[in-house]
Amino acid sequence: MALDNETVKARVQGQFGAAVLEASEYRGDLAFRIQPDDLLPIVLFLRDSADLQYIWLASITGVDYLGRDPRFEVVYHLRSLANQHMVVLKVGVPEAHPHVPSIVPLWPTATYQEREAWDMFGIVFDGHPDLQRILLPEDWDGHVQRKDEPLVYEEVAFSFNHDDVDAQKPYAKE
């Protein structure tokens, strides 16, 4: 039985009411905007309800909306394999207190993805067994995918400044 967006929307809004700040549909994808504190009950409801069964966590990712409040957003994509449907959960995370409850106890697959979101955006997942850097070196400073972090750390050599850049380039010795 395939679920449709209307049914899921009615189910979730009927269960949680005002906890769902916004239920939107864009290009066929159903998304709920929620608060960090409501994440665990909603995810548990989506996973464990017999008629929904969103048992497969597709992805967790962070987005940095610099200049907006809340600044960060953690986006969860959940798939129901039996009902062939996907929902998106968007959790707004303020910059002053970037904490989200971890869903590793619900899905071990979140372990790496939450570590990645911490590594890239500095979002803290409370209750994660070992939240540390995963892709960047452990002594790295800052969280690179934030919008206020630079992309490039080295000057690019073009023909007009080639000699200057080349003179500064730390060429290796034997």
Binding site: V144, L151, V152, Y153, E154, V156, K169, Y171, A172, K173
Partner: peptide, 15 residues
């Protein structure tokens, strides 16, 4: 890949 993560040419590390 002109970015933070990649060494800009391996000649910075080895000859």
């Amino acid at each position: 890949f002109n970015n933070y993560a990649v060494v800009q040419g391996v000649d910075e590390i080895v000859p």
